[in-house]
Design a protein around this nucleic acid. Sequence first.
DNA 1: GTCAGTGCAAACCCTTTGCAGAAAG
DNA 2: CTTTCTGCAAAGGGTTTGCACTGAC
Lengths: 138, 138
Amino acid sequence: MLSTQDVADRLKAHGILPTQQRLLIARTLFSRDQHLSADQVMHCVNDDKDHVSKATVYNTLGLFASKGLVREVIVDPTRVFYDPNTSNHHHFYNVDTGELRDIEASELAIESLPELPEGTVSEGVDVIIRLRNATETH
Amino acid sequence: MLSTQDVADRLKAHGILPTQQRLLIARTLFSRDQHLSADQVMHCVNDDKDHVSKATVYNTLGLFASKGLVREVIVDPTRVFYDPNTSNHHHFYNVDTGELRDIEASELAIESLPELPEGTVSEGVDVIIRLRNATETH
DNA sequence: GTCAGTGCAAACCCTTTGCAGAAAG
DNA sequence: CTTTCTGCAAAGGGTTTGCACTGAC
């Protein structure tokens, strides 16, 4: 596991005050080198003798994401949108408005697919281009 | 709006029994030509004098998706995973196990980006390759 | 001592479940 | 008539909120 000092430096470099709980959460994320949901982080952190409350875990992860320390990835299949267009196509997603807009498959080409992990087959490829309104200050 | 008959034929073509509620939901989806969440569909349908229960809306949308009448798109920003890797990269997502795995940016190239909608700037591009276990019957 | 961070519990929202009643063929 | 679909209400799971307490500087 990374040393507490390393992690603390990393937090500071992103303008985050390194408190005990934040260090614990950051070490959990970085040492596992996995993608974890907020809920999973909570369970991992609280498996050990240490304890961090639910609210703090959610707050902290949101803070990390907004400071660019971690990246949010949207892949939860329990929250979906339904698209009447079943053809092979992709999407613009406006993070400011929540608006979703189609991209025709012909407008975007993926050059090379990586090798799939052993024992798996591809179900499909989703490309989501995240947009922000140019005028919004942020 | 599409005629009831058109929609009924479409349902039958996908092996779906066209009941009153299913027709209502299908017409809502297809006439709007938008991406709607289950919740939004429920509100749209129930804005008019007609009424379809919550359970039926969820069941019906799940049925439509499993029959290929509509497509599920995962873009809900309220359910996210946190990724300690902030570099530009993409993901394998195993729908059977829920496992998420990195794809290095160098392994996958996008040939051509479409023009962005006016007044927006790109925040980033997410590529998610959905996988299924080859051995799973389904 | 001040201000930011944390903990707790309750509220909240969306989704799923179980079963009785209704509708379709 | 039989099978499938629908409605209701309640449970479930994950996320957010409000406010008092604690800890960092």
